[in-house]
Design a protein around this nucleic acid. Structure first.
Length: 226
DNA sequence: GCGACAG
DNA sequence: ATCTTGTCGC
């Protein structure tokens, strides 16, 4: 068993896939968390000119989603973008924030897939395992899976199927906007994941915590590149 | 072999 | 993801 918050850097695609297959066995897709007092959200932004990446982690206090703290970190990109291997590109940028002592949330929202992934191990699942924290993947587009047409009204959703399993839901977060792809990362069930994400959507397509870290990460990058 | 393909 | 402003539509 690997110690907490370690992150092996695969040298090849084959190696990365092997790591995913191994760690996926630890994923738990049922509700396993106590009262939600604080939720967190993470995001990573990239520079087109340099090979730097910028990460943001924000933590909010419930029930009003009051911003409690924002943490940042930037680092060189060490892994290319390969569909299905996103976590090996982004987690090395995010992890130092937690290794330095940022408080873990009761639940983490991640911009990307949870188990709606070729090997059922998207970045939300990977982060959930590495940090041992309940996590939900909230992606803006599809990686894998099929689903029936989603109603155009806010709140409509359809289950997302992949390899004969329900791996998540496709949710119309706002009327007439492209749907979101919600899937559990770790220690959360699919129905709960959908319910929680809906709870934190106010007036935009993305849930507020993710939208916040999204823009914070961009500002952070622009500031450091200026 | 041909497309699809999170961020 | 990033490069980029205003603009059409609900």
């Amino acid at each position: 068993m690997m110690s907490m918050m370690e992150f092996p850097q695969p040298a090849t695609i084959q190696e990365a896939i092997a790591i995913q297959q191994q760690l996926q066995r630890q994923v738990r897709i049922y509700d396993d968390f106590a009262t939600l007092l604080r939720i967190g959200a993470v995001d990573v932004s990239y520079s087109k000119k340099t090979n730097h990446a910028y990460a943001t982690y924000a933590i909010f206090r419930l029930p009003a989603l009051t911003l409690e703290a924002v943490y940042r970190h930037s680092a060189e990109v060490t892994f290319p973008y390969v569909p299905g291997l996103l976590s090996f590109r982004e987690i090395p940028v995010l992890l130092p924030i937690f290794q330095r002592g940022a408080p873990l949330p009761d639940l983490l929202l991640v911009d990307g897939q949870g188990i709606a992934h070729p090997r059922f191990f998207g970045i939300a699942a990977h982060l959930g395992i590495v940090l041992n924290v309940p996590a939900i993947g909230c992606a803006k587009s599809r990686l894998v899976g099929v689903h029936k047409p989603v109603g155009v009204i806010r709140g409509s959703y359809q289950w997302l199927f992949y390899k004969h399993r329900i791996v998540g839901a496709v949710l119309r977060s706002r009327t007439k906007v492209r749907p979101l792809y919600i899937s559990p990362g770790h220690r959360v069930s699919i129905p709960t994941a959908v319910q929680l994400v809906q709870r934190w959507i106010s007036r935009t397509r993305l849930p507020d915590p993710i939208r916040f870290v999204d823009q914070q990460t961009r500002r952070y990058r622009q500031q450091l590149e200026a």
